[in-house]
Amino acid sequence: MAHKKEMTAKKAASVSSAVFYKIFRLFVLIGISYVVLYPILTMILQSITLPTDLFSSSRVWIPDNPTFTNFTHCLKYFKYGEHVWITVQIAAISTLCQVAVSSLVGYGLARYRFKGNTLVFMMVILTIIVPVQTAQIPMYVDYQKFDFFGIGKVIGWFTGTPLTVNLLNTKWVYYIPAMLGVGINSGLYIFLFRQFFKGMPKDLEDAGRVDGCNALQVYLRIMVPNTKPVFVTVALLSAIFYWNDSVISGMFLNITENMPIMLYTEFIMDPSYTGYTGVTPEQFKAETYVALLLAVAPLMILYIICQKFFTECMDRSGIKG
């Protein structure tokens, strides 16, 4: 009898602790959501508020008369489609290169204990640590007279004039570093891939080798399919960082027609910009929000597409010990 009582008491305790835990979890998640959503909702709601209503005291959250006039007015001079297309190209190609290269490098670092492995790994960390600003001025000089890593110079010994190309204001300022593992956040992705590949059991690869796969085949046919979530994560992050970049473009790609969307938004949404003479501060503010929302909208769509992969398709049935 006493034993039974103890059991019910234990059960009751575990139920109450479970309820407490659920409340606690909800508290944490709602707190986070509040902090994250507040500024974003502010942006969204103010972008559909009439500029004249922006500071009216009757409006707290939902505008009295929601309108899209801010959007239509903004799109008159905000060449959205053009610059989004430029950015899509940059983000897609750079992401593809970056994912391919950083996963290969990460795999090499994780699985091959070649001489100097640690040194290469330290080099990777160094590329993450040194602030990008350091390299900007020397890189500017380099890109202006890009000689294909010295090949152009060698050609110059024979032809008399060194072969150089001006890469400034071309998309190559994004593609070349991405291809060579030194693009935006490349070091981080190499590190990430290395960590995850290291965490994979070696048996599968051994099985592949026994079946006659070479090193590249082992990587392509065994490692890649089994670490899909990591690939999707890196691709998503990479695309976001290329999309949102305004540092590289601000330095090397700053002719108005060639600007990626973020830099373009920054450029257009400048109070001193000529398109803004005669616009009230309220309208300027509302339209800045419109422009920013439009600029990140494709990323939201990308996230929604990737989310399924990213959060749910992580069934690791292929790996057992």
Partner: peptide, 13 residues
């Protein structure tokens, strides 16, 4: 495997 990174590191970093 790490060759692309080494080239990038050498010339672009």
């Amino acid at each position: 495997f790490v060759l692309p990174f080494l080239i990038g590191f050498l010339f672009l970093f």
